[in-house]
Design a protein around this nucleic acid. Structure first.
Ligand code: FES
Ligand code: FES
Lengths: 153, 153
DNA sequence: CCATAATTGGACCAGAACAGTACTGTTTCC
DNA sequence: GGAAACAGTACTGTTCTGGTCCAATTATGG
């Protein structure tokens, strides 16, 4: 369905909320603050910690803190941290594609990937918080849901 | 992993190849021509037929043909035909998100979705075939794989 | 210095979604 | 009437996500 995992969605919410706190914050506190179930937010923070998005402090009085300001964290970075690399197709480098030899599309998918990454890298968590996303996108206007070509067939 | 399904990948390959044929083409022929396993390409074509991307001719001497020229078919249309609607987040309209009330991000995700759809709608199958993708994207240049912020942390 | 409590870290398990396959039915040409 | 090809459905195996549980670590208090 070309949707990112719910974990990523939660990660963005948690990070934005975390950016509003000035001190280290624990998972339970963040859970209460965001409304995300505690085990889930804990897992998300854990992953984000391994990816360096947030820094962690173990033990009592521990918690998490943003490793960078909200303005420096792009949506793409969060997605990559949770969902892994942004590669729309499986046949970018590995080569586990059956049609490799006869496909003829070569590395054209890379361009598509780049387009996606570009769009995602241009949006930071600060934009999400401040609702200033439109500024970065240059006022693109696409129909809310361009339905498939069945309308024309 | 924010990747589209392998079926979609196959669909693009099959459609581009189909666009190079002038007459109706059968699944076995298309399978041989693309290197995609026959049952899989048959399934893909079937789905594409229901979505109106290709027209089908039943019976002997039957086969598939493009419903529109390659230039008119966008990557987004193919993705929507196979994978369903392009909605990155689950909390766009349905509202099955736990953090709905406290999330505070409102409809900011819609902007991200629009950005993705825009990027995908700007690329047609003809662009994939002719390697003219860069023309549409306005010369965006992003690093091949912008690794996460762990580099700076 | 030791015991305790709080919190993160990592591993584990269940469920759902997906890819792939197979089969049966319908339509068309020869 | 027979053969060829699409249409639709159903099934199965696999992968991945989402969620849960237990172990390692550190600060605190006595
Ligand atoms: S290599 Fe996989 S589709 Fe071209
Ligand atoms: S409503 Fe789902 S994260 Fe905001």
């Amino acid at each position: 369905m070309l949707k990112l995992s719910k974990l990523t969605d939660y990660a963005v919410v948690a990070l934005v909320r975390l950016g509003q706190k000035s001190e280290v914050t624990t998972s339970p506190v963040l859970s209460r603050s965001t409304g995300i179930p505690e085990p889930t937010v804990a897992k998300v923070l854990k992953i984000l910690a391994t990816q360096g998005i947030v820094t962690s402090q173990r033990g009592a009085r521990g918690g998490y803190r943003l490793a960078q300001p909200l303005e420096e964290i792009s949506i793409a970075a969060v997605i990559q941290a949770i969902d892994g690399p942004i590669s729309l197709t499986t046949c970018v480098d590995g080569g586990d594609c059956d049609a490799r030899s006869t496909c003829g599309l070569g590395g054209q998918w890379d361009m598509v990937n780049a387009a996606i990454r570009h769009a995602l890298s241009a949006i930071t968590l600060a934009d999400m918080k401040n609702h200033t996303v439109t500024d970065r996108l240059g006022g693109l206007h696409v129909p809310p849901m361009p339905d498939g070509p069945e309308a024309t067939a």
